[in-house]
Design a protein around this nucleic acid. Structure first.
Length: 258
DNA sequence: ATGGCTGAGCTACTCAGA
């Protein structure tokens, strides 16, 4: 089963790119972040034509997450954590993989910049709430996959110039510690687990030829609960969509699980 | 290279992104 996470930076502005991606790479489950639309304006029909069902937690203008799936999922849930700002940033569902029921989380963690504002506190609060909820969730079901835009650069290798990001909400030590805290509950950052020294990115900003110069960062991740690690066949950052016309600033990360 | 590019909402310009 191929499960993919992709921050699309508006599902409506990106519908051609996303459709092209689906037809070319055939994900079973595609988790989208930053769809930037309410459910009533979501392009359900476009995905239906490609034989995918859509499950949407939308919001006007900003944020928003969705699951586009060919596989059967159950228990789709919005508002999984109590978000102080009422932002659409997380959904949960269950998917059967072989004989296991796996809890699948799709997350869009707050950016947190600038760090001298309440946006940064909101990011920390959000991460703390999320960590607590995952801790609880593990007690009920140890099979968990968390995919999404974490807005966290885990280590120095994961950004083109780490010295520029020491006081950035994506790379500040206390934020990276939250990432470690999550992992210490019993997960691996599966990309780094498989690729020990590889320097690849999932995001390049739109400015000043960042893509052409490969000035990017790895901020989109899959965390896999320890008991599922040996079921992972492959994890891949697919740069193709970032190279297309009118791209998202993020590119998909793809997971193969058996 | 802390400034420049992109999308939404709206229709001039701000907010947000990372």
């Amino acid at each position: 089963m191929k499960i993919v996470s992709w921050n699309v930076n508006s599902v409506r502005a990106r519908i051609i790119n996303i459709s092209e991606y689906i037809e070319k790479f055939k994900p079973d489950i595609l988790m989208l972040q930053e769809i930037k639309t309410e459910e009533k304006n979501f392009p359900f029909e476009n995905f239906k034509k490609l034989k995918y069902e859509s499950y949407v937690f939308g919001q006007k203008s900003y944020n928003g997450v969705a699951i586009i799936t060919k596989s059967k999922i159950s228990g789709f849930e919005k508002n999984y954590i109590k978000d102080k700002k009422n932002q659409a940033r997380i959904s949960k569902c269950e998917v059967k993989i072989k004989s296991n029921l796996v809890n699948l989380f799709n997350i869009y963690v707050p950016n947190g910049n600038p760090i001298n504002t309440d946006k940064y506190q909101y990011k920390k609060d959000w991460l703390n709430l999320f960590i607590k909820k995952i801790e609880q969730s593990l007690k009920a079901n140890k099979n968990i996959i968390i995919g999404g835009d974490f807005n966290i650069i885990p280590e120095e290798i994961d950004v083109h110039d780490h010295t520029r990001y020491e006081n950035d909400a994506l790379f500040k030590i206390e934020i990276r510690k939250k990432f470690r805290e999550l992992i210490n509950l019993g997960f691996v950052d599966i990309y780094r687990h498989i690729n020990k020294n590889k320097q690849e990115y999932t995001f390049w900003d739109y400015f000043a030829g960042s893509w052409q110069k490969n000035l990017g960062m790895r901020i989109d991740h899959f965390l896999i609960s320890n008991n599922l690690i040996n079921r992972i066949q492959n994890v891949k950052i697919n740069k193709f969509p970032r190279s297309r016309i009118k791209p998202s600033d993020h590119t998909p990360i793809e997971l193969e699980i058996i």
